[in-house]
Amino acid sequence: MPVQYTSIVEEHQAVRNAVGIFDISHMGQLVIEGSGAREWLNGMLTNNIHKLDVGTGQYTFLLNDSAGIIDDLIVYRIGEQSFLLVVNAARTEEDFAWMQKHLPAHVKLDNRSADFGGVAIQGPRLLELFHALFGKDMHPPPRNAIADLPFDGTKVSVARTGYTGEDGVEIFFPATDAVNFWNAALENGKPFGIKPCGLGARDTLRQEMCYPLNGSDLSPERNPIEAGLGFFVDLTKPNFIGRDVLLKTKKNGPREKLVPFRMKEQGPPPRAHYAVFANGERIGEVTSGTISPSLNWGIGMAYVSAAHAKIGAQIDIEIRGRKFPATIEKKPLYKK
């Protein structure tokens, strides 16, 4: 996926106001199956897999022994004892190795990343495009569900998920069908104002929603509670990797927290690695930042010391030696 096809702002607006398509063929797909796969996987991931019916998915984390985030991913239950994990491209190998290391004899783990292509189609005109592509009588699965649907003589997996805050689907198909599907979607999407979208728009869209990006906001040095994502961790599960550390973090409170912020004045865009201050004291660092194309205003996320991580708190972002005031906000930073 390129950074942009035409312009980050134009592509961003297409997703907010019409529909956009992203090539997500780079994402990793791991398939896990076998008797006991469900129980084993529940001990590897933070969210509760027992809540998943066949054909549904959830956002979850794969942690190391110190509860650091190896990856954030979506796990789909695609059969009684089979699961599809859609993971970050750059983490696929590491995810695989970590799970392989813990794999019991009766469970099978397959890296199928090279076999699949994929697109994300996102935006308020998604349903119109969906019907144009799949036929009037076909419907996309409900939010967070996944279903196999017939397309052009073959079968594709459609998940009602996304990374933009808009209604959307992520569609996976054999890698050999990728070009065909991409072209069909662009052609059928013309009446709805479809635009191909790149990494730049993906980044501004997800930042407005405060969705974290692995490698920027999440890393093996951060745990989900520090990242403000405890909602996707089920500490009532008796056992999963990282649980002991998370229980301690929860009890003592995290040292730092990831918070969204909004600049107080029009000015330069905040960017990753800028220092954050409060009352002249350094309290943290920006991990993501941009000018929000929807708000036309500077926004971002930063890890700050827990004492300062309060909604409404005043902070300063240091940009090229000058301090610019900002306010810690609630998620999301953009609402329609």
Partner: peptide, 9 residues
């Protein structure tokens, strides 16, 4: 001077 786009400074 500095020119900043959404992409970079």
């Amino acid at each position: 001077a500095v020119v900043e786009s959404v992409k970079a400074a």
